[in-house]
């Protein structure tokens, strides 16, 4: 449980533990069975162990690379609405996908 700091200053290996996994599961809205929490823990630790090598890379003064196109793509559109007909059609198609509707509203059933 918690972080165990390796004596070697170049790498800090984090071990998440079941409490941490449970918290992450809640934050991610994932309901995990006990056996999943138990198996995911070591697997995630192992992956984070591999990821830890990034801590040894010199990144001072490096700008993060967030997308290959941030400088190039135009990315805007005119402020023009779609036609009423297209709006109706689109809304209808979206509505058709809904598991549960009440007078058009999407329904989340009563929680107990």
């Amino acid at each position: 449980m918690g972080a165990s700091v390796n004596q070697d200053l170049k790498s800090t290996t984090l071990q998440l533990g079941t409490e941490r996994i449970s918290k992450l599961a809640l934050m991610s809205r994932l309901k995990l069975e006990d056996h999943e929490i138990e198996s995911f823990g070591p697997q995630i630790d192992s992956i984070l162990g591999h990821v830890a090598e990034l801590q040894s890379v010199v990144v001072e003064g490096v700008e993060p690379f967030l997308s290959p196109v941030s400088k190039m793509a135009e990315g805007t559109r005119e402020d023009r609405p779609r036609s009423n007909e297209a709006l109706r059609e689109g809304a209808r198609k979206v509505g058709a996908c809904a598991p549960q509707q009440l007078e058009g509203a999407f329904v989340v059933p009563p929680v107990l």
């Binding site: 990315g75 559109r77 005119e78 709006l87 109706r88 689109g90 979206v94 996908c97 509203a105 999407f106």
Partner: peptide, 24 residues
């Protein structure tokens, strides 16, 4: 009427992407 003013983008359907309105 509820959910009459939407599309697959603003309803967050899979595969949809946002494109910024230049006027904003």
């Amino acid at each position: 009427a509820p959910n009459s003013n939407l599309c697959s983008v603003c309803a967050g359907h899979p595969g949809t992407l946002p494109v910024l309105n230049e006027r904003v």
